[in-house]
C-alpha cells in the first residue's frame, strides 16, 4: 500500500477508535443516574445522527451552490459583480454564527429546516469566496496561452482553471466544514437537535461528563472531515 494511503487509513482509524473508546467509557462509568439516562446508547446515537444529517445536508447544498456560483462569478463578464459579492461575503462572514441561527429563527421559526438553511447559507460563503479567488488569481499568461492554443472555454475551465484553483477551493471547503460542524452544535437552540443537545443539557444540569461527550464527538467529527478533505487535496494537487 502507498504511504499516503497508510496515513489516510491510520488517522481515520485512530479518530474512530478515540470516539468509540470515549463513548464506551462514559456509558460504562456514569457518575449518576441522570448522566446514565442522558448518555444512553440511543441518546448519543440520536444526537450524533442528527448532527451528521445537519452537517451533511448543509455541506452538500453549500458545495452545490458555492462552487458553481464561484465559477460563474469568475467569468470575465461577471468579474465586477464577483468583486462586489466577495466583499458582501466577507462582511457576511463577520456575523457570528449564533446570530445567523437566531436571525433565521425569527423568520423561519423553530426546527431542523431552519437550522439546515442557516448553516447552509453560512457555509456557502467561504466556498464561494475561495472558488472565485482561486480562479481569478490564475495568471493571465496561462489563460491567454490556453486560448491561443485553441482550447475551448469549457476545456480551459476543466483542464486549467479548476485544477489550478483546486488548492484554494479545497482550503475554502475545509474552512466551511470546520465552521459547519461547530455551528451545528448551536442548532439545539432552535430545536434542531444534534450534539449540541448534549452540551446544553450538560450545562443546565451541571454534568461535565455530558458536556465533554458532546463537545468531544463534534470536535472529532470536525477533525475527521477536515483531514479527509486535506487528503483529497493531496491527491488532486500534485504540483
Amino acid at each position: 500500500m502507498k504511504k499516503e494511503n497508510i496515513k489516510l487509513l491510520a488517522v481515520t482509524v485512530a479518530i474512530f477508535v478515540t470516539g468509540l473508546v470515549m463513548v464506551y467509557y462514559v456509558m460504562e462509568n456514569p457518575t449518576d443516574s441522570m448522566v446514565e439516562r442522558m448518555l444512553s446508547r440511543e441518546n448519543i446515537w440520536r444526537a450524533f445522527r442528527e448532527h451528521l444529517v445537519i452537517v451533511g445536508v448543509s455541506m452538500a447544498g453549500a458545495l452545490a451552490v458555492g462552487i458553481p456560483g464561484g465559477i460563474l462569478l469568475s467569468r470575465p463578464r461577471f468579474y465586477y459583480i464577483g468583486k462586489v459579492f466577495e466583499n458582501i461575503v466577507n462582511i457576511g462572514q463577520t456575523v457570528p454564527s449564533l446570530a445567523i441561527l437566531a436571525l433565521f429563527y425569527t423568520i423561519l421559526g423553530l426546527g431542523f429546516n431552519t437550522a439546515v438553511f442557516a448553516i447552509w447559507l453560512y457555509s456557502i460563503l467561504p466556498i464561494l469566496r475561495n472558488t472565485f479567488a482561486g480562479i481569478t488569481s490564475i495568471s493571465d499568461e496561462v489563460i491567454e496561452s490556453a486560448r491561443g492554443m485553441g482550447m475551448t472555454g469549457r476545456r480551459i475551465l476543466t483542464r486549467i482553471e479548476l485544477p489550478l484553483a483546486a488548492p484554494i477551493i479545497t482550503a475554502g471547503i475545509r474552512t466551511a466544514i470546520v465552521i459547519n460542524v461547530g455551528t451545528a452544535t448551536l442548532a439545539t437552540f432552535i430545536g434542531a437537535g444534534g450534539l449540541g443537545d448534549l452540551i446544553v443539557t450538560g450545562l443546565s444540569i451541571r454534568r461535565n461528563m455530558i458536556i465533554i461527550t458532546g463537545a468531544g464527538l463534534s470536535a472529532l467529527l470536525a477533525i475527521l472531515l477536515d483531514f479527509w478533505i486535506g487528503q483529497i487535496k493531496l491527491r488532486l494537487v500534485k504540483w
Binding site: E141, M151, T152, I160, W239
Partner: peptide, 22 residues
C-alpha cells in the same frame, strides 16, 4: 472557426504561460 484557426497556429507568449500543474 476560431478554435480550429488557433489550433493550426503555434503560439508562444512572453512569459511562456506553461501550465504549472501539468
Amino acid at each position: 472557426n476560431q478554435i480550429d484557426l488557433r489550433r493550426g497556429i503555434g503560439y508562444v507568449i512572453q512569459e511562456i504561460g506553461l501550465f504549472p500543474h501539468m
